[in-house]
Write a protein that binds this DNA or RNA. Structure first.
Length: 335
DNA sequence: AATCGGTGCAACCGCGTGCCA
DNA sequence: GTGGCACGCGGTTGCACCGAT
């Protein structure tokens, strides 16, 4: 038995939106909100559209603060880094890019970034685990300036099931249960909650402090959040590597980077002998940087591109354990 | 000027998930 | 516990636009 259609597709308008429809929808939502029900919204707004279509139009186009146009090198770098670490979780990636929608990022990746990357390295599927010495520069560094060079750094490592965070030892203090995340520095404030097997904690509003977002958590269950784009998303905290950072510090730790912004996203990899290694480099504070040797990352990206699987690929370090505690990431919703 | 192919983006589709009765 | 409903997400499609021929 199939799913019942969300609307009578034969009797609703489809295809591109007219300016009149746009203004009707915008006006209605600005005046009344979505009412928590997209299905009935079109009728209330006087639109002959499917509720899903209205939702999409609002989220991807009409919403305030939507950014259109060229992606910056920094945005490209964030997308590449996060894609490498979490795969095609566009909504999560979008949460790191204020004003960008998941659809935008997905399109940008599929039409530009993917081709750019695929065109620059020959795909060598049988040589996945070799490493270049750190001082070898990939041609990609020259061709893709948004990807940074690999530079080793001294860090404390917190391993986890998914890409772990590394906290540079010089920037770590065990004082409070606060993490500073430099890449959130443009956020005004965030709403945070975490869901665990025992329920969802009350949402908390977090404000950037010294240009960093502070996440407040307790014990081994702390949430990750982000936003600004007016939507919310589910984030498995292990995917972003927070879980063990917190748990290894008994819930009391601070990545206090002062103004140096060295919080890092790193990448757990396996070498040709099957043992794990961690690649690390300092973060300049604006974004998550590539943590592994670049040529390795790009091969991985190519594998990901080549794979059509959705969050269930088998190459070990990218698969996500969907059974892990899932975090609710609440953004400042518009309505 | 007409045609063709490539590209980019908006919109659609269908599945997974959470919520609620 | 279960089934129905609505939402959100990621993959895919459709089409307008543009440059090359």
């Amino acid at each position: 038995m199939g799913r019942a259609p969300c609307c009578d597709k034969a009797n609703v308008k489809r295809g591109p939106w007219s300016p009149g429809e746009d203004s009707k929808l915008k006006e209605h939502i600005e005046k009344h909100g979505t009412g928590g029900n997209w299905i009935t919204l079109p009728q209330k707004a006087g639109l002959n559209r499917c509720g899903k279509s209205c939702r999409l139009r609002w989220l991807n186009y009409l919403r305030p603060n939507i950014k259109h146009g060229e992606f910056s090198d920094e945005e490209d770098r964030i997308i590449c880094t996060l894609y490498t670490n979490i795969g095609s979780r566009w909504s999560i990636i979008a949460s790191q890019l204020p004003g960008r929608t998941d659809n935008d990022i997905k399109n940008h990746w599929n039409t530009k970034l993917k081709k750019k990357l695929m065109g620059l390295l020959p795909f060598e599927p049988h040589h996945h685990h070799h490493r270049k010495s750190p001082n070898q520069t990939s041609s990609l560094h020259q061709n893709l300036p948004f990807i940074s060079n690999y530079t080793p750094a001294s860090t404390i490592s917190f391993t986890s099931l998914a890409p772990p965070f590394h906290v540079p030892s010089s920037n770590y203090n065990c004082t409070t249960n606060t993490i500073s995340l430099p890449f959130y520095q443009n956020q005004e404030s965030l709403l945070v909650s975490s869901s665990t097997s025992s329920g969802i904690t009350p949402m908390q509003q977090c404000y950037p402090h010294n240009n960093n977002l502070h996440l407040f958590g307790s014990g081994s269950e702390v949430s990750v959040c982000s936003s600004s784009d007016g939507s919310y998303s589910h984030v498995n905290q292990e995917e972003l590597g927070f879980q063990n950072y917190i748990s290894n510090n008994s819930g009391f730790g601070e990545c206090n980077n002062n103004n140096n912004n060295t919080f890092m996203l790193s990448h757990r990899s396996t070498n040709s002998y099957g043992s794990e290694f961690f690649d690390e480099k300092p973060n300049d504070g604006c974004f998550l940087q590539m943590q592994t040797p670049l040529d390795y990352e790009l091969e991985v990206i190519k594998q990901l591109i080549s794979s059509n699987s959705r969050s269930n690929n088998n190459n070990g370090y990218f698969s996500v354990d969907e059974n892990k505690t899932e975090e609710k990431v609440m953004y400042n919703n518009y309505y």
